[in-house]
Amino acid sequence: MDENIQSEYQKLDRLLEHRSRFAICALLKRYDKMAFSRFKQLLKETDGNLGAQLRKLEDAAYIVVEKEFQGRKPVSWYQLTEQGRAALRSHLEGLEALAS
């Protein structure tokens, strides 16, 4: 494999290879905060699957969660961290380089 292509492949983030996790980070780049229910509506995932993907991103410190109450209803708001932002940037650069 060409050395350049290999170095671009290394830029790809394994965690963001999964489309739901990639989509979550892309959405959080566009919006400062997003709620679990909105992710569920946009990604059309089940609660269990979405929760698992979010937890993986949280464990990698790509996102942080903040819980609040809206009336009596608990709402989980997710936010991209600097580390997550950098990982997304690098992943996008890798994809772009591979595409060209």
């Binding site: 489309r19 990639f22 989509a23 892309a26 959405l27 566009r30 919006y31 909105r38 946009l42 990604l43």
Partner: peptide, 18 residues
């Protein structure tokens, strides 16, 4: 597979802004 994923993400982003 990668193109399919990118198309999915594009659709999700469009839906969030529609």
């Amino acid at each position: 597979h990668r193109d399919e994923n990118l198309a999915y993400i594009k659709k999700v982003l469009e839906d969030s802004a529609s």
